[in-house]
Structures are given as C-alpha cells and as structure tokens.
C-alpha cells in the first residue's frame, strides 16, 4: 500500500514536471485562448497583386474571393482572356514571356503566388520569373508590360510603366522589413 502511494506520488511529480516542461516549449500562454476557434465566414483572398481588381468583372468580385484556387482557372480563364483583349482593343498577341492570351490567363487565373525556396525571390527581375514577391518589386510595371507591352515589351510605351519606381519610404534591411507608419 505504501509502495503504491509512493508510486502514485512519483507519477504525479513526473506528470507535473512533464507538463510544466511542455508549457515551456512554446512561446504561447499555457492555455492558448484561440485553440480550436472556428472562423467560418469567408473574407478576402489574394495570391498575386492586382489580379482580382484588373481581370475580375464587377459582378464576379465577391465570387472570385470565395473560389478556391484549385478551381479558379476553370471558372475564370476565359473571362480573363476577354478582359485582356478588352484592355488591348482586341490586339493582344503575346508578351515578353512568350505567352499567348490563353496561356497567360491560364497562369494568372489561378491566383497563387509562386515562391522559390532555393534562391532569389522576385515577381520578375528580367531573369527570374514569379519566384516570390519582394517589397520593392515594381509589380505594376511588370504587370503593365505583360499586359500592354507585346512580345518585345516595347508596344504601347505610354502604358507599360507608371513611372513610380519605388515606395515612398525606404524599406528596412532587417525584420520586419516594412517602413514605419506615416
């Protein structure tokens, strides 16, 4: 009987030690206030910059936010092609990536940001294509060039750059990288 009590006590001590150990194993409070909380109401969704606002028609904007990426292309590719041609007065042929309208919109209609785990991360730097999105990437000029610039990037020169080439504040070289607020 005594032995049983001793065993029980040492088991308790062990349990207490283990649980306090696991509590110290993460930076959370011992009882996490959010574990298991359900967020069931659909909000916003975005992968690449500007896709919803450029290519999705007014009537589809809420639907696009509530369409999971794996079925986006089937639902939106042909609508995006129509919009791309509308921007170009029906004259879009290809772009500097060599993508015709169908192929280009096939890529963009799945609104997922491609990210490399092994090298430079950039939206497009002339060499690397869609390997991430850095804070200082001029995604607008890239997008305008792909949409309006034609196969050599030289068509419609008045439309392929907004001539805002950098942010209004310098980014930080260290975490959290973004500039302090105004």
């Amino acid at each position: 009987m005594k032995k049983n009590i001793i065993t029980l006590l040492s088991f308790c001590a062990l349990t207490a030690a283990l649980s306090s150990c696991s509590k110290n194993n993460n930076n959370a409070t011992p009882t996490d206030p959010n574990t298991g909380a359900v967020f069931a109401v659909t909000g916003d969704q975005v992968g690449r910059p500007g896709i919803a606002t450029v290519f999705v028609g007014a009537a589809d904007k809420d639907t696009f936010n509530a369409t999971i990426p794996s079925v986006m292309s089937a639902a939106f590719q042909s609508k995006f092609v129509t919009q791309l041609q509308a921007y170009n007065g029906g004259a879009y042929t290809s772009n500097i990536l060599g993508l015709n309208a169908s192929a280009f919109m096939g890529v963009l209609s799945t609104d997922v940001l491609n990210v490399s785990l092994t090298g430079k991360t950039t939206y497009y730097d002339g060499t690397n294509v869609l390997t991430g999105r850095a804070l200082n990437d001029d995604v607008i000029d890239v997008s305008l060039t792909l949409i309006f610039g034609g196969p050599n990037g030289t068509s419609n020169p008045g439309l392929t750059s907004d001539h805002v080439n950098a942010n209004d504040k310098a980014f930080l070289t260290v975490f959290p990288y973004e500039a302090a607020p105004w």
Binding site: A40, D44, L113, V115
Partner: peptide
Amino acid sequence: MFTSTTGKIGVWMQTHQKM
C-alpha cells in the same frame, strides 16, 4: 519547416471571420 520537396511552394492569403 516547409513540407515541399520540390524547392518551391504556392502561397495565397485569406481572411475569415467568426460566425
């Protein structure tokens, strides 16, 4: 910490609200 074995991942961002 990423499970990808291809050297690349696809990322998108969502917001959701509680009921």
